[in-house]
């Protein structure tokens, strides 16, 4: 039985690949540079599909991928019905509220720009603040500079992008790492194969953790 793994393209991909290799999976090197979106690795009984990070949870929820690797930010934003099995502890970063230094939120029309409308809305509602959420698809840092919104909610990993655009971090919302997720039906129907993958990944995560401590 072949297991289909949904992988996020971009930032997380390389780190996830390193972790899979540490878990003992023999993965061909051309996986990283291929332009194909679906790659079979028959000797490991694995099929990889390469998707946009935001879409990995969708593929897994619908069961066209049995398992996947997705950021906690995506899981929080999308609220999909999938098992969150493991914290892979890769690609650490966090979600934060940022803005121009020494600025106030607009008293009449407070606006927040973000790629994460669901997370941002929940966060400000929890604070009891009424804000208008503006959904953007990228380059969110632009919004305060050009006057679209006074605040943004975005992923911060090193803080360099914020700094280069003259923005400061105001509040930290939640820490984010990548997670190993599983479709609820696959979790039952393919339990052996998935359990084995979880065990191998757990071992790799622990080994990676030890390396970091030393």
């Amino acid at each position: 039985m072949m297991l289909t793994v949904a992988m996020p393209k971009g930032r997380i991909f390389t780190e996830a690949l390193v972790l899979l290799k540490q878990a003992g999976y023999e993965i061909p090197d051309d996986l990283e540079h291929s332009r194909k979106l679906m790659i079979d690795v028959p000797n490991e009984q694995l099929r990889f599909i390469l998707a946009k990070p935001m879409d990995v949870v969708t593929y897994v929820e619908h069961g066209v991928a049995d398992v996947g690797i997705a950021g906690k930010d995506v899981l929080l934003e999308e609220e999909r019905d999938v098992y969150e099995m493991l914290d892979l502890r890769i690609s650490p970063c966090y979600l934060a509220v940022a803005g121009l230094p020494n600025t106030r939120v607009h008293p009449i029309a407070p606006r927040v720009a973000t790629k994460y409308p669901n997370i941002a809305s929940t966060y400000f509602r929890e604070q009891g603040e009424q804000v208008e959420i503006i959904k953007l698809n990228g380059s969110v840092e632009l919004a305060p500079l050009i006057g679209l919104a006074e605040r943004i909610v975005d992923i911060v990993s090193t803080g360099r992008t914020l700094k280069e655009n003259g923005l400061v971090e105001l509040e930290r919302i939640v820490d984010v790492t990548s997670r190993f997720i599983v479709n609820p039906v696959s979790y039952r129907m393919q339990d052996r194969a998935i359990e084995q993958m979880v065990d191998r990944l757990t071992y790799a995560i622990e080994k990676a953790g030890e390396c970091n401590e030393n």
Binding site: E61, G63, P184, M189
Partner: peptide
């Protein structure tokens, strides 16, 4: 759960 359906 059944095969070929991603949901309960």
């Amino acid at each position: 759960y059944a095969k070929n359906v991603g949901f309960l």
